[in-house]
Design a protein around this nucleic acid. Structure first.
Lengths: 165, 165
DNA sequence: TGACGCATGTCAGTAGTCTGACATACGGTC
DNA sequence: GACCGTATGTCAGACTACTGACATGCGTCA
């Protein structure tokens, strides 16, 4: 028998993680036939929208560290899907871009990825999807805001108490 | 200058990932002082809600594979935070539970984690939070539903549909 | 009873991801 | 020109996490 404590269903973080995990799994399954992982696809997607972007900027937009993006890029470069000059034209940033072959592969991947994204919100109306995006943005702002990283995260019972209108 | 293609702001999957990444970062920062990672905390949280659960069930509820949960549990076990019998009482499943020390540590972690979760939805009204949860659940259902994995039409008869509220 | 299906746990290998640390390059100020 | 802060890229080490494969235990059904 399978045990499952689903009283976690009202914990936003838990549900958020569940949704993300499901999306990731579905995305991986969809892209695997093309030989791409989800992170690789995201990287290429970003490259197509901002050719010549640096690895660090790429990392920020993909929500990973520079180091992670660096290893990711190396893999794509070894497969000839992205191109970057040996030497930086200025400073240390090396502008990165998709190779023609990378662009071709991306086109195939985009069609599949878009389908998954569409499927995810298939049960929502356009208005509900808009609201979902708005609410998620608000959550992001609340987590990343200036006063978000306060170390004095004590007060366990202080502000959680108010009966939330 | 920093390049960023934010025309991705309306791609649900991208925003979802952003939110999850922010939450994960904030959660890691919050739990690090206690010597716990987010996955470890999730594992202990589940254990406290379902003592005696098996590693496989734990994995399902934490949205990771059995293998990942197995290594996670080993780490926690080595630190004396969880306990499991050497031999399974029946079958292969070994019931796992928190040790007293694990329970103590979890209590501290919960207070911090709850604060982060509350902070995340601080900018939303109670009604909006409810909607957010409902929309996310719908997305999950759409991704995990029967005809979600169209690649192999095995058509399992277990269909989880009937109990749709 | 024995073959089969299914779930559990585990090992091996690989990929993704993080923190920490270091060297390098640019832009300011003095 | 020298110094300092910041940004970039990279190496090293560790943890998280996945796929693939295998052995074991339980149940069903011919």
């Amino acid at each position: 028998m399978r045990q499952q404590p689903d009283d976690l269903a009202h914990v936003v973080g838990y549900v958020l993680k569940h949704a993300q995990a499901s999306l990731r799994t579905r995305m991986d399954d969809t892209l695997r036939p093309l030989g791409l992982s989800t992170p690789q696809y995201v990287c290429m997607e970003l490259l197509s929208r901002a050719p010549g972007i640096s690895s660090s900027d790429l990392a920020r937009n993909a929500f990973v560290t520079r180091q992670t993006m660096s290893t990711l890029l190396r893999g794509l470069q070894d497969r000839g899907l992205v191109e970057r000059p040996e030497q930086a034209p200025s400073g240390r940033a090396r502008p990165t871009a998709l190779s023609p072959e990378g662009a071709r592969l991306l086109a195939l991947a985009q069609a599949r990825a878009d389908a998954v994204d569409a499927q995810m919100v298939a049960g929502l109306t356009a208005a509900q999807t808009r609201d979902l995006l708005r609410y998620l943005e608000k959550c992001i702002d609340a987590l990343e805001g200036d006063d978000a990283g306060r170390t004095d995260a004590t007060a366990p019972t202080d502000e959680t108490a108010p009966d939330e209108r």
